[in-house]
Design a protein around this nucleic acid. Structure first.
Lengths: 173, 173
DNA sequence: ATAAACTTTCAGAAAGTTTTGAAACTTTAA
DNA sequence: TTAAAGTTTCAAAACTTTCTGAAAGTTTAT
């Protein structure tokens, strides 16, 4: 009886980790990174690098690299247990914190560079008046769009608690 | 004099196409697809497959495949010119239409599947009461999060005009 | 019917990304 | 010190995605 029930939990964890890894990889977080995050979310205790390697079947290098990225993103933290040499890692289980960080990362990596390019190509001049005007209009639209997106990410990235989605959902009711 | 000014327009188009391609590839639209879209946005006339191949330096297969995807997404349309056998393609230059379609695609491809998994693993049972309860709480949180995200995408994907971002930006002022 | 003009398909090649694992490096305890 | 325990790095391998180009398919005009 014990085993049957226990399988359900283990099975559930596996499925969750796998699914979260898949979702992550379509959101600019690589598979291993998202899986480590999921593993830490469902782990009752902080885990060591060896635990992570073993449970996800990944190499030491991979585990180390992605744990470090998660720490850089402020999603995962290190804990030192008294009397142990190993480092143990945990996540604070607030998924909105992760979402905000993802927003900030993507804003920095993707939105800011294109806004720079759009500013750069704004207001070109040229031979064909009509064509130039049309081009400048297109650039203006794209810039407006991208800046709005950037603004949304900005608000979201900086929002405390659940402010963003509460506000948003209320508005949309 | 003509040439100098004209270079500016050509140069601007090139930069824009390249930048839009890069942005696309981090948003689940492949590079060539995004570049074709950008090219059509700045083209004064609808373009044929040969035009696209030539201007972006890509193969016929690649051009064809991605034009078709853009048409499937409803972003690009076909035009038949009288007396010409070739097909010419154009985009309606509404960037928000593209954004809404991207939202719909990603919702379908990414959000819906993970919500299904989360529903599946919800309420597992097991040996350790505390651990099971914690797991179920994590799943509940993730499901709530993902469903909210899905709701936002839903609204956005279905919104007419600029409704979404107007509402959002007003709220956030 | 036929052939020219054009479009589509798809297997293999190229390019890009992630992972491994062993070596180098760092820290700690005795 | 030094050696054991642990962490980090990075070149090569594995895997994934995208692109090419030639062949097959389709349409149109005669």
């Amino acid at each position: 009886m014990y085993y049957v029930y226990n399988m359900q939990l283990t099975e559930g964890k596996k499925k969750l980790i796998e699914a979260w890894g898949t979702l992550g990889s379509s959101w600019g977080i690589n598979r291993a990174m998202a899986q480590i995050h999921a593993l830490l979310m469902v782990a009752p205790q902080p885990l060591s690098t060896d635990d992570i390697m073993e449970q996800l079947n990944i190499s030491r290098g991979n585990a180390n690299m992605n744990v470090r990225s998660l720490m850089e993103w402020g999603i995962v933290k290190k804990e030192l247990k008294a009397g142990e040499r190993k480092e143990f890692f945990y996540t604070d289980k607030d998924i909105w914190a992760l979402a905000r960080q993802v927003a900030r990362e993507r804003q920095r990596r993707e939105l800011v560079p294109i806004i720079d390019v759009l500013s750069e190509v704004q207001n070109v001049e040229g031979g064909d008046k009509v064509e130039v005007e049309e081009f400048n209009n297109v650039v203006k639209d794209l810039k407006g769009f991208t800046e709005n997106l950037n603004g949304i990410f900005d608000k979201f990235g900086k929002s405390d608690q659940h402010w963003f989605y509460k506000t948003l959902l209320n508005t949309m009711k």
